[in-house]
Design a binder for these strands. Structure first.
Lengths: 189, 189
DNA sequence: ACCATATACTCAACTTATTGAGTATGTCAA
DNA sequence: TTGACATACTCAATAAGTTGAGTATATGGT
């Protein structure tokens, strides 16, 4: 499971609390790894048990104590081991495609609406990513870490663009009265 | 969870055994929904409990009896209900991107090798999909179901192409001695 | 004063997915 | 004849992910 290894990779850059890591997931990792705060806290606990990370308690005024985690030597070893393992593509599970598969059994306007909504979602996500891209490109001397992070951002941008293009392709066919894909037969009424 | 609804959608076309459904997943659904045989059997059991499918036992010589499942009226209702629910994009979890993120901490040749391997994997998958595309296009009168299935295939083809393009983009940068992304510092040795 | 949002972490129940074994047999090729 | 692969299904353990609540306080806006 790569969640552990994603966390370890982030900790290579600098020590961080579970909360910090969760923030990093939201703002830059989300385009290729999604994890909830709960998951991150749970994994950090397990990783600490294995000696891959160690934490320092930082007392805070008013708030619960911070646990600042750092990667250990054992953690580095585990990470390097994992980096050298071959990686397989992640199996995909995409609800929208199931709806397209069932296109013959659902009202056409609903499918079109769904595709338009999705196109919009991906467009917005792409614009957010492109802002980050512009930010990166405005920095004349990005760090090595930033340069690699940028490559993952490129993946995110392409992914969103690709969805938009596919949605457009399908919408053209669905809206075509002839020759395209038509013929919804209402089920059970 | 869309596994149930994917199975229901497949059963709309014609009744099938768990084994048949599993085959269909492998040969045409895999590009957007991956499920193991065990999962399919388990879900069919639960779906039967809810009255969404019903099976007929077909005795076989030598082999275990086949359970031929068909979608029920209740199943159709459930499917239509689900079709009308809005769909959110699936969160992505992609190991390879985690490795790219950690590019500064892993030996460059390993990362390059992984990317080349992945490019190859996606190329092969794309070629398989394109065969199916050619097959579809050679049929002058595809069924409505086939036409929708083709739209999902288009998603698969685009997805693979997009991966190939990204791999190429990244490989160019990684192989560039200057100006690109270099500078692996060996960890712990 | 009140509400939303942010910080920072914990616990528990639940669903979903993975892995591996087990039961039984038929076909095809080396 | 041995082994690989296909048919056809079941059971069980574990891993991973989701959902929701709970503890505590600070800040900023209406």
């Amino acid at each position: 499971m790569a969640l552990v290894h994603t966390i370890l990779t982030l900790l290579c850059d600098h020590p961080a609390s579970g909360y910090d890591i969760s923030k990093q997931f939201e703002e830059s990792v989300a385009c290729y790894w999604k994890a909830s705060q709960q998951q991150i806290y749970r994994e950090l606990g397990k990783m600490e048990g294995k000696g891959w990370v160690a934490f320092e308690l930082v007392p805070q005024a008013g708030k619960p104590d911070k646990k600042i985690y750092a990667i250990t030597e054992t953690g580095h070893q585990e990470l390097l081991r994992w980096y050298q393992e071959p990686t397989e593509p992640t199996p995909i599970r995409e609800d929208l495609l199931v709806k397209v598969l069932g296109g013959a059994y659902l009202p056409n306007p609903i499918l079109i609406q769904e595709l338009q909504r999705r196109r919009q979602t991906h467009l917005e996500q792409m614009l957010r990513y492109q802002e980050r891209e512009a930010q990166y490109q405005s920095n004349p001397h990005p760090s090595l870490q930033d340069r690699y992070r940028y490559l993952t951002l490129r993946r995110g941008i392409r992914y969103e663009q690709d969805w938009i293009h596919w949605c457009d392709e399908v919408l053209v066919l669905l809206k075509q009265p002839d020759g395209g894909v038509q013929g919804y037969n209402a089920l059970g009424g």
